[in-house]
Design a protein around this nucleic acid. Sequence first.
RNA 1: GGCCCCCUGGCGGAACUGGUAGACGCGGGGGUCUCAAAAACCCUUGCCUUCGGGCGUGCCGGUUCGAGUCCGGCGGGGGCCACCA
Length: 862
Amino acid sequence: MARYNAAEVEPRWQAIWDGRGSFASTTDDRREKYYVLEMFPYPSGRIHMGHVRNYTMGDVIARFKRARGFNVLHPMGWDAFGMPAENAAMERKTHPGKWTYENIATMRGQLKRMGLSLDWSREFATCDPEYYAQQQALFLDFLEAGFVYRRESVVNWDPVDMTVLANEQVIDGKGWRSGAPVERRALTQWFFRISDMADELLGAIDTLEKWPEKVRLMQANWIGKSRGLQFAFETIGAPEGHERLDVYTTRPDTLRGASFAAISCDHPLALALEGAVEGLAAFNAECRRMGTSEEELEKAEKRGFDTGVTVKHPLVEGETLPVYVANFILMDYGTGAIFGCPAHDQRDLDFARKYGLPVLDTYHPKGTDSFAESPEAGHAAAYVPAKSDIVRYVRPIEGEHRDMTGEEAIDEAIAWAERTGIGAGVTKFRLRDWGVSRQRYWGCPIPVIHCDSCGVVPVPKEDLPIRLPDDVDFDKPGNPLDRHPSWRQVPCPKCGEAARRETDTMDTFVDSSWYFARFTAPRATTPTDTDAARYWMNVDQYIGGVEHAILHLLYSRFFARAMIATGHLPDTAAEPFSALFTQGMVCHETYETPDGRKLSPDEIGEKDGKIVERATGGPVEVGPSIKMSKSKRNVVDPDDIIAQYGADTARFFMLSDSPPERDVEWTTAGVEGAWRFIQRVWRMLDDLEPAAPMPAEIDAEATALRRATHKAIAGVTADIEGFVFNKAVARLYELANAIGRASGDGPGRAAARREAVETLCRLMNPMAPHVTEEIWAALGHEKPLVDTPWPVADPALVTEDTITLPIQVNGKRRAELQVARDAETAAIEKQALAMPDIAKYLDGKAPKKVIVVPGRIVNVVV
RNA sequence: GGCCCCCUGGCGGAACUGGUAGACGCGGGGGUCUCAAAAACCCUUGCCUUCGGGCGUGCCGGUUCGAGUCCGGCGGGGGCCACCA
């Protein structure tokens, strides 16, 4: 038979599925639904191998669940707003929308060539006015329900690009694009009140049993719940209104070791003192200029400014502590003020060293009493044991020296503070409210109007959508909406006077925080449709990269709750993603010439067993395998692979070898292995006899093949269900090997072979859908595999009648014994001891002990 | 600095809740077919061996009849967060 020709076969089957409407999904209460979703792509230009891997995995699940009888929803769309479109507009003098929709067209074509079982009728892009209109409606409902508010906040402002920068866009205090020194500016911005939900979002993590433990931990850490003591120092010499200084600490047990207090440069007390204390204003200003990048913080010296104000030590009568403004205190965590305990905090120790402050041990390692007499003796570094460790408290809050854990001491300290009225135990969260205002054009306009007399007025819903104007230019930096001649000008909906539109747009994370709900009714004239949402939600399996483990997933969880509260989702949808899978990255080797030019994989070749540059034949240094990226020049274009080998090969390779959650290395050898296997399965058609019923009596060879077939069904089913596609692939190879072994004539062999090949084809279909459809049709089936149910394993053929039992002597394997699967323990023991290979170790004596684990192993102890 | 994860042949990786370590693939070696090559197929492939066997899952120790798997310590690699009080 001719070689399998993917280039001809694949588009043909894609057209057939398309023609049959195989993947269109409709609400049907009589059928059980299954919603599988992969994180939708940003339309950057072309799909990359990471997409291929992500969407292949989702497609395996989708096709598998379809075959298992579920009503499957498997949609695709585009996370289409965002900066790259604006950057492209600036560079290429094009409109961001034009650029985006062209990219979408390209990428849609690429995805279609992959043969994904997607319901394209539900496709949308978040930059479609139909989508962002509904997002604006949601915003207004959130505003009314109190999930949205406006406040002033300090942002990184790039004075050249005239835009706000995220922290990671500030490099060495300069804007990443403009290179201009970044300013800190106070802007009034919109916030989602996510921090009010911190405890709820944290607590519900426990219910996410089908999420990776890693992601649950990352979310929990991000929310960052901490229990501590908030209490007030009495101040001496502070201005009026600052008689008390509130501080928050997670280690109240170390209060006796306090040697100073410190406040942030933005703390109200610091501001109040600026006029009164010589030099403080300048110091504060300098602190505010300090960057927030990792590197700077690493190097930055602990610096402080003695305000002259002091506070009374709450535990030691008559003692006072100096109050500093210090550059390492954050205003937006806790109260913006701390007490410093140098003995048990490295930062405080650095600070104390610099300013000559005392270092007082509160506790030290258990059993080292002498330490107490010279507190500073051992302090090369702060002593910070785990809270659960038992330590010797030498300066406890109350009472005498004693041993206890940090946790116990903290409990005591909080109890003491509450008893004496100094403070109270409080819970704080690291999670801040979500600022969503962006000073950009290519995003969802925030639907409010600013009126001089009425203030902030929401746009009436009937006026939605607030469309982005098309006639914008990107010649000048800044937000084109701001300088548009007419777009801003609008009458106030309340009083009718001249007013201005909000020109900020929403963070693109907003767009992706509810798209999964929109897919359930993408053409609804409200954000969601009640019946559709009730039927399709939640997403049964969500698949994407771990880089979205925190923000996207947390925002979506917040949004789901807010949408429930505003009537847009059923109250069963608080956790919108029932199961989450985070797949690994696609990596490739890197290549470099001796003179430092990076070469891409298609620029290298092989000569005399060595890697060389194809164009010059010159030597090439092979670098480590790292995530495919343009800047490393180690990308392989999916289109090239599909053109050369076909989509099935690309898909099959993506699933082979590496466990889905781990990184996979793209290699030519691996792709060729997948391609060879597909050809091999195709060739199985050649020597297959015509279909015939399975005879009643079949020989041992045929039985063995039937067992292999049914074991493969059970195994592949479990492996797909368990998201271990590499093992499922290995089982397909095993079945193919078994088919190869069972050649020749004999009763039942031909029928067993046919059953095996047909089964192989069906099990392989979710991974390589085109070639398997082609084989299935060649086998004479009228109905395509896409409409054929998943095979069911015969339990009688999955378990063996006789099993091979390893026999150990003192834990080392010495022999094997064939026994019936249900053999009696006593009989097995007797047989095992009688074996010559075992008896020789016994030396005629009775064994000390014989352990028989039925169906597993026998261990003879001599 | 905090929290977490990982370490198995030349390579990617299997090994269910402690029970035959190395499934499956890649790579290597040998062979069949061919004028030759490609393709395909078959055999072989953890290390050592005096051919009896011995040793092997980063290292050291422990628990157990039995440890890749559990516990303690050490070493190496990685991830996330990060002046978060």
